[in-house]
Design a protein around this nucleic acid. Structure first.
Lengths: 142, 142
DNA sequence: AACAAAATGCAAGTTATTTGCAACAGAGTA
DNA sequence: TACTCTGTTGCAAATAACTTGCATTTTGTT
């Protein structure tokens, strides 16, 4: 879990071809500090208090940062999106079918599987990112 | 791609502990015939015409069938859910980040990866299903 | 400093999905 | 077969998540 300085983040935004605004930086910075993918609601709630950012701005920034591939957008069948930094590492999680528990699992290599999928594909010839969601009941809900 | 008879589907619904209604059967039957995960919109559109089913009924049936684990609910970052039958086989797809193209890939085994994830988990001790979405640009959008 | 393009706040809009409630239908039992 | 209980349905209205229009401000560039 790398830690990014303000300068790192500024550089990332610039290299993505986007303007560096305090709000965009705040969104990226917040996401760089959390350990799990978080909901837009959490982000809006935190940034509204701290930096007085409107939710439309949060949505717009999430969207531009996602399009620029700095963020990964995830869905756990909870009715709303989750976001996390798009790091080199892939994103794999166990998701409870009953409650909102999500457990991120790291260190499971899946590169060869993704390659196999691509090889079998007729419509794609390259890929950028992927996510794996494994659903079950968490221990608390069992 | 197994083909289910009406009796198969009735049995599946009964074994899931749900009542067998014409509408529920129609939803399951429709999903048993499509080759790709489909949107609720498509389903509503088709069933409204054919069987005069209200969209609330479609949503409620999708929900009950999903909860009973007869369906799998998928999200491709398109702003709406997709559904498919929950067969023994897992669900893996390539998804275009730009348009709505989705390509289902079969025959890539991932059981050991899922097992590895479960072994690393602290919050789960068993799982039911999973999905893998691999994002990239399809050939048409490249 | 001056300017064009992009970002922002606010309020209103849109889309997907859910819900309340009265009428109806499936499934077990008498 | 009739009875009854509970799950299902249609319809309209509600909600949640997300997007958009527009006037104003900011950013990066010249």
């Amino acid at each position: 879990m790398a830690i990014y300085t303000r300068e790192d983040l500024i550089l990332m935004i610039k290299e993505a071809g986007l303007r560096v605004t305090e709000h965009r930086l705040a969104v990226l910075s917040y996401l760089s500090k959390v350990k799990q993918p978080i909901t837009v609601y959490e982000l809006v709630d935190a940034l509204r208090k701290k930096d007085n950012i409107d939710q439309a701005t949060v949505y717009r920034n999430l969207s531009s940062l996602h399009e620029a591939r700095l963020l990964r957008r995830l869905d756990f069948n909870h009715g709303h999106a989750h976001y996390e930094l798009e790091t080199g590492r892939a994103s794999h999680q166990l998701v409870c079918s009953n409650c909102e528990v999500v457990e991120k699992i790291e260190g499971v290599g899946v590169d060869d599987i993704v390659k196999k999928m691509l090889k079998k594909s007729k419509k794609f010839k390259s890929i950028n990112t992927h996510s794996i969601e494994v659903y079950g009941l968490c221990k608390a809900c069992t």
